[in-house]
């Protein structure tokens, strides 16, 4: 009974607040990350040598360095050059840039898997290179990249908890505060975990539905 009152009166409102902040972190980061990832993927495949080398370097760095180090760079590091970001902005910047590097891997693989004939056919119809990329190659490649990119979004949902480490109080942060006040660590973090499970499971289901909707007959996914 006491537990229930605690959950109802204290835990639920705080966790809901945190949940909402998490959502506000995840949705823009996922969107920006995906868009930037597509751009980087395209540059890596179709860019000239210098551009694709630069894009590759970006991907190596952002995939190789732990996200938490990246977040610390944006939040604690930038002031070194007198640039001050709010925790929230730093988190979104960090998530988007890191996520984009991973997305670009899947998109690059997918772009490379599209048969050369598609490009030739489009050229023969008078498409420009850019038109071909955006209206012929990319729509096919995105379907192939979707499982990988979807996975990346699930990861992002979980990694959004790291925002707490740069003092952006989202779901995990609210949980930590609650638990430290009440000493109900197990209960609170189980609740927090349940919230994340709901998010990741929902996202998985949504992505599966999206994959099913975008499926083209005979255009099977091959692992690459």
């Amino acid at each position: 009974m006491e537990e229930w009152l605690y959950i109802q009166n204290e835990a639920a409102p705080a966790l809901f607040r945190g949940f909402w902040v998490s959502v506000q972190l995840i949705i823009p980061s996922a969107t920006l990350g995906l868009l930037l990832g597509i751009l980087v993927g395209i540059l890596r495949v179709f860019g000239n040598r210098a551009v694709s080398a630069a894009a590759n370097l970006y991907v190596t760095l952002f995939r190789g360095i732990p996200l938490i180090v990246q977040l610390f760079v944006w939040y604690f590091g930038l002031p070194y050059w007198n640039i001050y970001l709010t925790p929230f902005t730093a988190a979104i910047l960090g998530f988007s840039l890191c996520s984009a590097a991973y997305h670009s891997e899947y998109i690059r693989g997918a772009l490379l898997s599209i048969k050369r004939g598609q490009m030739l056919a489009a050229h023969s119809l008078g498409f420009t290179r850019t038109q071909t990329i955006f209206s012929v190659i990319l729509p096919q490649a995105m379907r192939r990249a979707l499982p990988g990119c979807g996975n990346e979004i699930i990861y992002l949902i979980k990694y959004s908890s790291l925002a707490y480490m740069i003092t952006c109080i989202e779901l995990t942060g609210e949980g930590k505060i609650l638990a430290s006040d009440s000493f109900k660590f197990t209960e609170v973090f189980l609740l927090v975990g349940a919230c994340y499970l709901v998010m990741t499971t929902l996202a998985t289901l949504l992505l599966q539905a999206l994959e099913a909707r975008l499926r083209l007959p005979g255009f099977e996914h091959r692992s690459f």
């Binding site: 990694y159 995990t172 660590f185 975990g193 994340y196 990741t200 499971t201």
Partner: peptide, 9 residues
């Protein structure tokens, strides 16, 4: 399905 940080805590 649950973040590492949450599990650690």
């Amino acid at each position: 399905g649950i973040p590492l940080l949450v599990f650690l805590f």
